[in-house]
Structure formats: C-alpha cells, structure tokens
Simulated scan of single mutants.
Amino acid sequence: MPDIVRITSDELVVEVSSLGSEMQSLQTSDGRDFLWNGDAAFWTGRSPVLFPIVGKAPDNRIAVDGTFYDMGQHGFARRSEFTLAEASSSACRFELSSSDATRKVFPFEFSLSLTHSLDGRRLTVTAEVENRDQRPMPFGLGFHPAFLWPLPGAGDLAHTVVLDNGGEPLLTRLEDGLVTEEKMPSPFKKGSLTLAHELFEADAMIFAEGAGTGLTYAAERGPSLKFSFDSLPNVALWQKVGAPFICIEPWHGTAAKSGGSAELSERPYATVLAAGEKAKFSFSVEIVG
C-alpha cells in the first residue's frame, strides 16, 4: 500500500500519497473538503502530476530521435511509486528517478520531485525536473487537480472561473485525444466564464495561450479558490460530464497535434532541458471564505 503523508498549517490539512506523489485531500481546519475524493463511479484521479507527457500521443506512442516508445495518456509518473525525500509538519517532498521500467518508455536519466507546502490557507505544489542524461531531454509537465463542484456550502449557486488578466483566450478542442488546429471563439467574456456541465460534452476546454498566470474559481456568494501559476503557460478545464468536480489544470505542454508528429520534442509547448539542467513548475491555491 502507498504511504500517506499528512501536512498541516493553522488553516489547512493536506494528505499526499507516495503513489504518484498525488494529493489525496485538501481540507480546511473547520472540516470542509475542497478536493475531489476519487470516486471510481466518475474518475479515480484526485490531483495527478502529468509527466513526461501531457495528454495523449498518436497511437499511444512517442518518438525520440525516430525511435518509438509506448506511452499512455499523461505519462507514467501518476502511476509510479515515489520515495519520500523530506517532510516537516507543513511540507513534504517526494522523488521519482529513472529506472529500468522508465527507460523502456522514456530513454533518459532524470529525476522528478514534487513538493507540497502549506502557508496559512495557501497550498503550493512545485515540480522540479532534472535532466541527468548526457543529451537534451524533451518532456511535458502538467498538474491535474480536481476540486468539488459545487464548492462546500454552495449548493445550486452559479460557479465561475475568472481570469486575473481579464482575457478572452481562444479555445482549443481535442479530437481522439489530440489537439486540433482549429481555434474556436473564447467562452470567456471579459475574463469571466460561468460553468455549465454541457461545456464539457466535447471533452476538455484547452486554452493554450492567453489565460495568464492566475484565476479564481468561485461560487456566487460562496467560497473561492484563488490560483497562481509559475512556468505553466497552458490552462485546461475538464470534468467528466455531470460529475461533481472541476479540474483546473495548468500545464507546460499539451497533447500532440492531431495528424502531427510523434516526436516528443515537437509536441506543442514541449520543454527541452539541457543535460545537467533543472526546471521548476508550480501552482498555488488559496482558499477564501
């Protein structure tokens, strides 16, 4: 069984599993839950990390310099056992390093660490990727946290996503799990989107550019979650249609293009990390109300 680490602040309690270094719960000190519970009737995920790809690859295969490797949707990190590297009362860091199993599908020496840390009502999740190989390493990295919809105590109230930058980013959709070239009109109006389940009948809503570095997910006259993103230029919203959650997903990288290359380095917004270098990606969420 995976190990569970519990971290706390004066305002929050968070549990993190060694399996995928995945957050299992996010609760305020007054007992309100904000994270989806992983009910298998809808979706077993709660807050998986996406690595070394975000989304799908053509025929579930990536290519590295012309050699093909099997790679399932969102990569292997979310189903890998991490090792606890460091823990305190308010933070924990898990690590995943390259192994015989990972080299069969991702031919690089690497480490991926995930740190969850609390400060009052703010949770910060930071991923650090290190290229321990002797050649450049392409990859994608994303976060996939699911939050309750409706929010605690918000019942049938309207829920919105409001972008800090007030933008109206163009919408990208998926075709068989791959991103299409077509850019659709933005569903945001002056940075605001009122959520409705039918928005997700065509799968995820992807905003590859223009969503900015922060947003607020809120219930009318209810609680809100304020997000900020660092080195995560792509944002997606997703739910299993009719499920009582909404995923707010900041990414660096998207699914491969429909009809496009399987080369990992040619995926949209791929990071190509030089030998011996490190890269950090993080998001924070603050509970208000």
Rank of each mutant, 00 (worst) to 15 (best):
I4H: 08
I4M: 11
V5A: 12
R6Y: 13
T8K: 14
L12H: 01
V13L: 10
E15R: 09
E15F: 09
G20E: 05
G20C: 07
S21I: 15
E22G: 14
E22F: 10
Q27N: 14
Q27D: 13
S29M: 09
G31P: 01
R32I: 02
F34R: 01
N37Q: 13
N37G: 08
T44K: 10
G45T: 09
G45S: 10
P48D: 02
G55A: 04
P58E: 03
P58F: 06
A63N: 07
G66M: 05
T67F: 14
H74D: 04
H74P: 01
G75N: 02
F82Y: 06
L96I: 01
S97T: 10
A101E: 13
K104L: 14
V105C: 11
V105I: 14
F106K: 01
R122L: 08
T124K: 05
T124E: 05
T126G: 05
V129I: 07
E130D: 15
N131V: 02
Q134C: 10
P138S: 02
G142H: 00
G142M: 00
H144L: 03
P150S: 03
G153C: 04
G153Q: 02
D156F: 06
D164W: 06
D164C: 08
R173S: 11
P185A: 09
L195A: 05
E201Q: 12
D203A: 06
A204F: 03
G214M: 11
T216Q: 12
A218Y: 04
A219N: 08
F229Q: 01
D230T: 10
Q239S: 12
W251N: 04
S258Q: 15
V272E: 14
V272P: 07
A275C: 09
A275I: 11
G276K: 13
K278Y: 13
F281L: 07
F283R: 06
V285M: 07
V288G: 15
